[in-house]
Design a protein around this nucleic acid. Sequence first.
DNA 1: GTTAAAACCGACCGCCGGGTCTAAATAGCT
DNA 2: AGCTATTTAGACCCGGCGGTCGGTTTTAAC
Lengths: 195, 195
Amino acid sequence: MQRMQVSGLHLFYSKGYYNTSVDDVLKELSLSKGAFYYHFDSKEDFFVQIIENLLVRKIYSMLIEPIEGHEHTLDLISSCFENALETAVHNELDYGFVLSNFINEFNGRNAKVMKHLNEILRVWEVNLVSAIQRGKFNGHIDRHVDAEGVAVFLMSAYMGVRTLMVEMTPSARKYRFMSQIRHYFKSLEAKTTSV
Amino acid sequence: MQRMQVSGLHLFYSKGYYNTSVDDVLKELSLSKGAFYYHFDSKEDFFVQIIENLLVRKIYSMLIEPIEGHEHTLDLISSCFENALETAVHNELDYGFVLSNFINEFNGRNAKVMKHLNEILRVWEVNLVSAIQRGKFNGHIDRHVDAEGVAVFLMSAYMGVRTLMVEMTPSARKYRFMSQIRHYFKSLEAKTTSV
DNA sequence: GTTAAAACCGACCGCCGGGTCTAAATAGCT
DNA sequence: AGCTATTTAGACCCGGCGGTCGGTTTTAAC
C-alpha cells in the first residue's frame, strides 16, 4: 500500500495524472485491480492520499523547515532554493515541485484535488511571509520591504523556473536564476535600498 | 476550419489538451468527425496547427512586439507584463500564457509538441536578452547586469505568477508581483547598483 | 487445525476517445 | 442543367480506462 503510493506518485509525476491509468501503477508492482480497490475508493481518493501522505511531508521538509531557523533569512531561503533546484537538475523526483506540475494539471479541472494542493501553497506562503518578517525584525531585511509581496514573487519565480528547467539546459538556467535571486535579495537587505 | 482552431484553443486551454476530446470541439460547432479529419490528420496535428496559426502570433504581439521599442527597456517590459497579467485577471483567454499551461501539460509527454512550444520560449528569451542589452547600450541599465540571467529570471517569474494567479486572489497577487518586479528593475538600473 | 478476517486476483462491464470509411451534400464551373 | 471536386455527415471499429464482483489465497488468532 505504501509501495503503491510511492510508485503512483512517480508515475503521476512523470506521465501526468490523467495520462496514467490505475493499471499502469499496478503493472509496476505486479499487483491486481482487486488489491488496489481494496485499499482505495477510487483513483482520485488514491491521489489525495498520496498528497497527504507523501507530498505534504516532503515539501514541508524541503521548503518549509529549512527556512525556519533564526539565522539570516535570505541566506536560508537562497540555499533552500539552491538545494531544491539541484535535485531537480539531476532529474530526481523533485518533491520541491511536483506540486507546481500538479497544480497546472488540475487547475479548473478538479476542484477537490485543487483544494488540497492550494492548501500546501498556502502553508508555504504563510511560512515565507513569517520568515521575511522575522528577517525584518532581526534587522537583516529592510523594514520597508513588503513581506507578502516578496513571498508571492519568490513563489512565482521558483515555480516558473521549474517549468523552464525541464528539457532545456537546466543547470545553466539554475545558475542564472540563483544569481538573480541573490541579486534581488541584496536589494532587500537593510541599509541599502528600500521598497 | 478557422473556427475549429479558435474554439479548439479555447477548449484545450480551459480543459487541457488530453482532457478535451475531438468530439468536444466538434460539439461546440455542431460539426462532424468527417469535417474534422478532412482538414486535419490527427488531434496532434490539429494542435500543432493551432500553435502555429494562433498561439505564436498572439504571443508575438503580446510579449515580443511591445518591448522592441527604443525607450527605457525596463519600463517597456514592466508595462508589457502589467497588460498581460491584467487580461489574465479578467479570466479572458490570456494568450500571454496559455503557453505556460501547455508547456506544463506536455512536458516529458509529447516531444513533438514540446518542440514547437520550446521554440516560442526560445524566441521570447532571445528577444528579452536583446532588449536588455539594448537597455545597457542606451545607458538605462547597469552595464554589469547579466542579460541572459535577467531574461531567465523574468521568464520564470512571469510563468510562475500565472500559475499562482489561477483560483486564488489573482488581482492582489498581480499587484504584489508587479511591485516586486519594479523593485527588482530598480536594482538593475544604471548608476545605482551592480550585479 | 479451524476459522474468520484481511488481502489479493483477474475476468468482466460499460463507456469514451481517436480514428476510418462510405455515402451524401454542396459548391464551382461550363 | 450537368459534372467534378470539395466538404460534411455519422455509423462504425477498436483499444484503453475506471470500476465491480465473485472467488481464492494469506495471515493471524485461538
